[in-house]
């Protein structure tokens, strides 16, 4: 077991808001876990706790059997890669330099990356197909390219597990699918993967296990096909979403119905005019890239 999390609770002290409530889960070597949940349920908080950035109020997190709270950032970083939501840093380091920083947990303090570290970074760029960006400033590349660079940085850490915090946020449809492909690919290479997402369809695409973090901060966990049901989706998102087998792509897709039909509780008369138009959402999910 990589992670064993028992009875985890977290409260933001300033806001006095509890977001995780008695959460327990385990993560096996090579497993894929998607975490779904409404806004504010604490998906990112859970990942931050798992990465050791936040200390839970109650409960324990064990990483390879060791209590996470007793581990240093460096010890954690040698096992756990964390792909946080992309943001633009203050300085335009070259992408290669940026990715090389992933070697930090393996470079002694006051040391510098050597040739082997630079080669590892270059290999990661090759794996992700972004060697052409190597010498471009990180601040001047697109969102999708940034996301790939951050993933490359997590790869050169040589971790056992990589946590992805909404890796598809702020990306266009093409990049969303490309990133999901990369994540799937990494799982096949033997990394364990934990991903939070807003889009249940992405969880379906990725497969593996799914954890649902409810509004009450409780977590349900199980295989993708068992957990994701239309009833549960309605419960979490307060909106009707349909699970429909699509023979053309030979999988079950999660798509919303036509606007203003399934969701009259929240959508009012304002959308009547759009009734005749096809839903933009249903068009956007066209996983052409998916094998």
């Amino acid at each position: 077991m990589i992670y064993e999390i028992n009875h985890l609770s977290f409260t933001y002290p300033q806001a006095n808001r509890s977001v995780l409530n008695d959460v327990s889960l385990t993560l096996a070597e090579g497993a894929i876990l998607s975490i779904l949940g409404p806004n504010g349920a604490g998906k990112s908080t859970l990942l931050n706790c798992m990465a050791g950035l936040l200390t839970p109020a109650y409960g324990e997190i064990k990483l390879y059997g060791k209590d996470l709270s007793t581990m240093t950032f460096r010890e954690i970083a040698q096992v756990v890669g964390y792909v946080q939501q992309i943001h633009s840093p203050a300085y335009g380091y070259s992408v290669l330099h940026f990715v090389t920083m992933g070697r930090a947990p393996r470079i002694p303090m006051f040391g510098r990356p050597g040739e082997a570290d630079k080669k590892a970074a270059w290999d990661a760029l090759e794996t992700l197909g972004i060697t052409h960006l190597a010498h471009k400033p990180y601040t001047e590349i697109s969102g999708g390219e940034m996301q790939k660079a951050v993933i490359a940085r997590a790869m050169v850490q040589e971790p056992r597990v990589i946590l992805f915090d909404e890796p598809t946020a702020h990306l266009d449809s093409g990049n969303q699918i490309r990133v999901l492909n990369i994540i799937r690919d990494m799982a096949e290479r033997g990394y364990s993967v934990v991903m939070t997402t807003h889009n249940p369809d992405h969880a379906l695409l990725l497969g593996g296990e799914v954890a649902i973090l409810g509004r009450d901060g409780r977590l349900q966990i199980g295989p993708c096909s068992e957990i994701i049901t239309e009833e549960l989706l309605l419960e979490i998102y307060n909106t009707r979403l349909c699970l429909i087998p699509v023979p053309e792509v030979s999988r079950v897709a999660c798509i919303p119905p036509r606007l203003n039909q399934g969701d009259q509780r929240t959508r009012g008369r304002m959308n009547v005019l759009r009734l005749v138009k096809p839903s933009p959402m249903s068009r956007s999910i066209r996983p052409a890239d998916y094998e």
Partner: peptide, 10 residues
């Protein structure tokens, strides 16, 4: 945050 996930005692 980034530095911490890279194992740095910031």
């Amino acid at each position: 945050r980034d530095a911490q996930t890279l194992g740095v005692n910031v």
